[in-house]
Amino acid sequence: MHNGRIFTLVGGIFGLIGLVLLCVGITLAASTASFLSSAERTDGTVVALTERTTTTRNSDGNARSSTAWYPTVEFTVNGRRYSFQGSSGTNPPSFEKGESVPVSYDPDDPSDARISSFWTAFLAPMIVGGLGVVFTPIGAVLFVKGRRITRLRAWLRDQGQQVWAEIEHIGRDFAVRVNNRHPYVVHATWQDEGTGRTYTATSDYFRHDPGPDLHGRTHVRVLYDPADPDRNLVDLDARHP
């Protein structure tokens, strides 16, 4: 059984980020709706498409580039020409140069304007809010899982049944990444004398190889739930009597 603090910490971070994104998305949507409700409307023309390329790095450290095109729109109010660049870029471009688009502008300050189509006006709030909708439940699930694991570990330490399990394997868990590295784990097995069934317990994650710290030990203490031996805890600190 792995340490619940990791799930609790990651869940708390994801949940907090999700709530912040939700709040930002709702605020952006409310601000946009308020602007559109009081804005004047006219037609504008897309006069340019500006290409922007951003570079990010994934969990493996590899660079990844993405490109989006942002429209520049011109429109006229009372004989005066104004222009603005759309706040949202897309790939492929959502507009073509020379295309006519609806424009909403502040009648007291026509330089404050935006494309007034629903998808263009609310794209940013929807993206930010959508990320919040995704992050918040993920964070909640991880946080709850972490708390359950923490309570179970405490119960196992207090009431779990003890067995000395044979160390079967010490090595990296290549199915998991922690801080962009595969952590080390200890696998230990024991056989239930009543059922004859063999169970395997997995230790917490380790950043470094725990093998040298075991000093040649062949067995480790495992605390398990007699009603469900798959609920277990590897205690590497205990010494075999």
Rank of each mutant, 00 (worst) to 15 (best):
R151W: 07
W164G: 14
G160L: 00
L156D: 00
T198N: 04
T195W: 10
R157E: 13
W155Y: 12
R181T: 15
L156Q: 00
P183I: 04
N180P: 15
A201V: 01
R177M: 10
N179T: 05
W155K: 10
E193R: 15
Y199I: 04
H182N: 14
N179L: 05
T150M: 04
Q161L: 03
V176T: 11
A175R: 06
E193V: 12
Q159W: 02
Y184P: 09
G160M: 11
G171I: 13
F174I: 13
L156G: 05
W190N: 06
W155T: 09
G196A: 14
Q162N: 14
T150L: 10
R177H: 02
D204A: 12
T195A: 03
R177I: 06
E166P: 01
R177T: 11
G171S: 13
E168L: 14
A201T: 04
E193S: 08
V163E: 05
Q159V: 02
H187C: 13
H169N: 13
T189I: 04
R181Q: 12
H187I: 15
G160R: 02
L152F: 09
W155F: 06
V186R: 11
N180I: 05
G196N: 15
T200L: 14
G160D: 01
V163N: 02
W190H: 06
L156E: 02
V163T: 14
W190A: 01
T198L: 12
L156T: 04
N180C: 00
A188S: 05
V176G: 01
W164Y: 09
T202H: 15
G171C: 03
F174K: 13
E193P: 13
G196L: 11
R181L: 14
W190V: 09
H187M: 11
A188K: 07
Q162E: 11
G196I: 09
N180E: 10
F174L: 13
D192M: 09
T200Y: 02
G196Q: 14
P183Q: 01
T202L: 14
G160E: 11
A165H: 11
T202C: 07
L152Q: 04
Y199D: 04
V185M: 07
R172W: 02
D204Y: 06
Y184S: 03
R153L: 02
Q159P: 02
H169P: 00
I170P: 07
P183M: 10
H187E: 08
Y184M: 14
